[in-house]
Design a protein around this nucleic acid. Structure first.
Length: 365
DNA sequence: TCGCCCTCCTC
DNA sequence: CCATGTGAGGGCGA
């Protein structure tokens, strides 16, 4: 049986800020993504547990967080994404030493297959992860929450059971007692919509889901999702811990200074996004065969339009002219003003593989 | 297969 | 009366 750990750095951005300035630790710390709309336009990226006591949450409008913290000494800090990336990179290097195989999921989360390192013994696995937590804290002053179990999905759920600074082991014999009692939306991939549908089927806990009729699930969710749900609830996902695959798309998004439907006002934003996207592609040695444009409207609904190109490209002018050509149709279709706009590059191909193809073509001539 | 929409994922 | 930014993946109609 495998032994897999899921490691989640606690309230990551905000904890980085605490490390940077330990004197703020006992006060609410809120890391903000600013939109440029006025002083407080934007959302909460994450916040420390002191702020959470006041009801502040990820995704919340900054203005609302400020209301909740009125009269309280609190620290609202604009996100320093490059700094968090750098800290994350260093922590990941430490974690790798404690794993047979390693999978970085995001800036603050990773899976570790530790089966061989602990000889398949959950208790030894726990000791190993305890050591790793200590080293991360010694070197970076950061805490994390770790879940250990026999599959990725259960390790992930376990990591959330004792936050922050937790270390939870779920052995196979603990599955029913510890996991099946939890609500279904503790399973990654089950959000508000899926939970609502499951509830109408009388399925409330992960245990309910584990025992649910697979044919009913297939009828409601389709085969792919139904199979995942059923396996996940039983902790039987066969997912390997392996290096993350390369991105399949890149996108850039911006909030407009003011809601508008005017091409003239939108174009400068579009140009900037296409410029950034072109840079992203070049940095990663990629060409895109597809370019997409999406508008987020006043009511936060989304409309989009995309186009497949004849030739894959990373050229700014080509990307910009394609995006520009998609814009009028979006504007015509929209009955509401645009609030945000995004450009996406997809159907990516490696430049290196393309070059070897060209060499091959040239040689054969 | 393409294009569009929906759902979810965190921070 | 306010709601960021990035990316994955599925369903579905044409």
């Amino acid at each position: 049986m495998k032994v897999i750990a899921c490691v989640d750095l606690d309230y990551f951005y905000a904890q980085c800020e605490e490390v940077l300035n330990p004197s703020i630790k006992d006060k609410p710390v809120i890391v903000c993504m600013l939109s440029g709309r006025g002083e407080e336009g934007g959302a909460v990226a994450t916040c420390n547990y002191v702020a959470r006591k006041y009801g502040v949450k990820s995704g919340m409008a900054i203005a609302r967080a400020k209301k909740l913290l009125k009269g309280v000494e609190a620290y609202f800090i604009p996100a320093k994404l490059e700094l968090y990336d750098e800290i994350s990179r260093r922590v990941m290097e430490i974690m790798k030493k404690y794993a047979d195989s390693f999978e970085e999921v995001s800036v603050d989360e990773a899976f570790l297959d530790i089966t061989k390192l602990c000889g398949g013994d959950f208790e030894l696995g726990k000791e190993l992860m305890k050591k790793m937590k200590e080293e991360i804290f010694e070197k970076e002053r950061l805490t994390c929450s770790v879940g250990i179990s026999f599959s990725k999905v259960i390790a992930k759920i376990a990591s959330g059971l004792n936050k922050p600074n937790g270390l939870v082991v779920v052995k196979p014999e603990d599955l029913e007692k510890v996991i099946w009692v939890l609500p279904v939306d503790e399973i990654p991939g089950i959000g508000p919509k899926t939970k609502e549908v499951l509830n109408t089927l009388g399925i409330y806990t992960i245990g309910d889901l584990a025992k649910a009729n697979i044919l009913t699930l297939i009828r409601v969710f389709g085969k792919k999702v139904a199979t995942y749900l059923k396996l996940a609830a039983n902790g039987e996902d066969k997912e390997e811990v392996k290096p993350a695959e390369k991105a399949k798309q890149y996108s850039r998004m911006v909030t407009l200074k003011e809601n508008t439907l005017s091409v003239k006002e939108i174009l400068p934003y579009l140009e900037m996004l296409c410029k950034e996207l072109s840079e992203d592609l070049k940095l990663n040695n990629k060409l895109a065969k597809g370019i997409g444009l999406a508008a987020i409207l006043e009511d936060l609904s989304v409309i989009s339009k995309s186009k497949t190109l004849d030739q894959p490209t990373n050229d700014f002018n080509k990307i910009f002219s394609t995006a520009k050509a998609l814009l009028p149709d979006l504007i015509t279709r929209s009955r509401k003003l645009f609030r945000r706009i995004s450009v996406r590059a997809y159907n990516l191909v490696d430049i290196s593989s393309l070059e070897s193809l060209e060499r091959f073509a040239n040689q054969s001539r």
